[in-house]
């Protein structure tokens, strides 16, 4: 965004510190976040809001009467269940708080799944219907749009690709890490993802291991033999789309586990559990 010269705003520290997936069930926290997002919308006066499943921003857009689209994948569509029958707690726990806030704003309440908030606007899937089919009991009544792939396809060096990227799966290069990958022939990149995680930007490279907050896949992608990543939606999709094999370490996160297992079913990844 900065490279494009577009204006940007950053959330204040108290809002950055809120863990949305744990805090939206507290009506006071949610209301404070909605008020912040409403103020942002009044400052910016957009004709449309694109959001990444941010519940208070969706409520703010509803309150301000602004059209919105939410970037989604299958598990963010109402009714999706990892096990086929149970609505994940992520989407049931905040319902009471959401409905309290909606009542204060004189907006119709939602049913027993917070994802119905996203369904009040467009649900945009940043992928193709072939790669990411959306199925579920309510799909026919929802406004779901596949955008197509968002990244240009990198030219690959195919069998000559020798490098390895760790995307948010290692925060530093410790002795165990260095010993395990000492025999890797190509370059090794570590993307910590956040400056607060492990290595600070500018940490000295350790041999062929290079550490950064993020690495540009347009630049290093063609040389990658594989990626070790955490199963996030965008990373999983991009590896599949560009033919980069992956080892997926989803930890305890069900969304990332499901993404990794989809790549595994396509024959493009191996999922390893903790």
């Amino acid at each position: 965004v900065q490279a494009a010269g577009w204006p940007s705003k950053t959330y204040p520290p108290w809002a950055e510190a809120v863990d949305p997936w744990l805090s939206w069930s507290d009506p006071d926290v949610l209301m404070r976040a909605v008020e912040l997002d409403r103020q942002t919308l009044r400052d910016v006066a957009p004709s449309m809001v694109i959001n990444d499943c941010r519940i208070p921003m969706v409520i703010a857009a509803l309150a301000e009467g602004i059209q919105f689209a939410t970037i989604c994948q299958d598990n963010q569509v109402p009714g999706y269940c990892y096990d086929g029958s149970t609505i994940p707690a992520t989407w049931t726990l905040p319902v009471d708080a959401i409905n309290k806030v909606l009542a204060l704003l004189e907006i119709d309440p939602i049913a027993d799944d917070a994802r119905w908030l996203f369904a009040r606007g467009t649900m945009a899937v940043p992928s193709t219907a072939e790669l990411e089919p959306i199925v579920g009991p309510y799909v026919e009544e929802l406004d779901i749009v596949h955008t197509g792939l968002l990244n240009k396809q990198a030219s690959t060096s195919g069998s000559r690709a020798a490098d390895l990227l760790f995307y948010r799966t290692a925060g530093s290069a410790d002795e165990e890490f260095l010993a395990a990958f000492a025999d890797w022939n190509g370059s090794i990149y570590i993307a910590t993802g956040e400056t607060m995680v492990g290595a600070a930007p500018g940490e000295p490279s350790r041999g062929r291991v290079q550490i950064g907050t993020l690495w540009d896949l347009d630049a290093i992608g063609p040389g990658l033999r594989a990626v070790v990543h955490h199963g996030g939606h965008g990373t999983t999709l991009r590896c599949i789309a560009e033919g980069i094999p992956a080892v997926v370490l989803p930890g305890p996160n069900p969304e990332r586990t499901a993404n990794g297992e989809r790549a595994e079913r396509l024959g493009r990844a191996i999922v390893m559990h903790a």
């Binding site: 890490f177 990958f181 980069i244 370490l249």
Partner: peptide, 27 residues
């Protein structure tokens, strides 16, 4: 989704290294 990284909640790096040898070729 929830922004929790897996650092500290993962297999041993030596097991990850071994898994890399079983991946399909780069397309």
């Amino acid at each position: 989704g929830p922004a929790v990284d897996v650092t500290g909640d993962r297999p041993a790096w030596s097991d990850v290294r071994a898994a890399l040898d079983h991946l399909p070729p780069r397309l």
